[in-house]
Design a protein around this nucleic acid. Sequence first.
DNA 1: ATCGTTTGCGACAATCTTGTCTCAAATGCT
DNA 2: AGCATTTGAGACAAGATTGTCGCAAACGAT
Lengths: 190, 190
Amino acid sequence: MAMSREQIMTAAIQHLNKDPSASVAQLAEAVGISRATLHRQFSNREELMLALARRGHDQWEQAQLAAGLDAATASGDRKTLEKALNDLLIGLIKIADEYGFGLTDHALAVHPELARRAEELEAREIAFYTAAQRAGLLSTELPVRWISDVVYGLMVAVREGLRRGDVARRDAPRLLLDTFARGAVPRRES
Amino acid sequence: MAMSREQIMTAAIQHLNKDPSASVAQLAEAVGISRATLHRQFSNREELMLALARRGHDQWEQAQLAAGLDAATASGDRKTLEKALNDLLIGLIKIADEYGFGLTDHALAVHPELARRAEELEAREIAFYTAAQRAGLLSTELPVRWISDVVYGLMVAVREGLRRGDVARRDAPRLLLDTFARGAVPRRES
DNA sequence: ATCGTTTGCGACAATCTTGTCTCAAATGCT
DNA sequence: AGCATTTGAGACAAGATTGTCGCAAACGAT
């Protein structure tokens, strides 16, 4: 049975999460096909990486969509924004887990097309965070770009926690939301 | 004037922060010496990387020392723990900035000796976080290993924020401490 | 069973990287 | 100025990676 492009990509990503510097030969082996067949689907290594990254970006965008990010931003309504924030972060967990290697891969970050796309996606979130600040949902003492960096960093943390088994998969959403919202220091016990 | 080992390492790190996959030839050029000279100081690529990582780990340990981590852990005193936590996080910022590429480099993470050393250093922090939890300084609702992952993730966030210019260097400590302690959602405005 | 397609295998050239070596030039010390 | 050491430049071989190709085997649909 022919391996579909999608199947190849999924298996390739899983292996890249284990070894981000895997060669094309190693990826083909991990997928369970020959190098020639892999090259018939993706003529370049870069083409494969691009396809992976694009799918990751698509999922990212999908998470934003599913969370109703833009609508929430436009509404300015606190409850709506809060729901969207939670949905977004929970959606991003899955992506961080599945596409983890891409979080910190330099080649992807440097690629012009991918960088542009990532910027667009970030820009949407930044607009969203700004609206959330205005609604009193996010602290105005933190620069909005820092908030975006924190979300990124926490995704790296989630990935690491899951990878090392520090965090049970079903606990990840609660831990992430808790930490992002309230930090690690308990409220005054006064 | 002869380039000292230390000077080579510093220049190499700076370049690796820009391009984590730089070849030995590129590193030598960035340092301003010939490849032959670089190889006279570090016979292997691995030896160079090891030396860099070891220095990073030394600085990490130094930051723990300077923060009085172990003493604070042993004391169990809340004020002492709080001061140590702040000092630690601020100390780590500098390391994340200087050795940033090492935060997410897979080859380093996989190297047995380095992994062992990192584990030891983490173990100290985990003991410290545990003490901080007992003293009511850190939330007991968060698994201590997750707290450790969060610190790691926030270091990645700091590095990213500094690299992209999202965060002014002098603001980094406040933003990091604020975010780690209280999260991004403001306290009830009641 | 047959025909057309897809696959794996192996070979291949091109490129890059790494580590070594030699030798002449530069440097530093006295 | 003279001498010992260090450096850079370049050549070199070995190895790995990448992308291509041809061909025989496997496969799938009819």
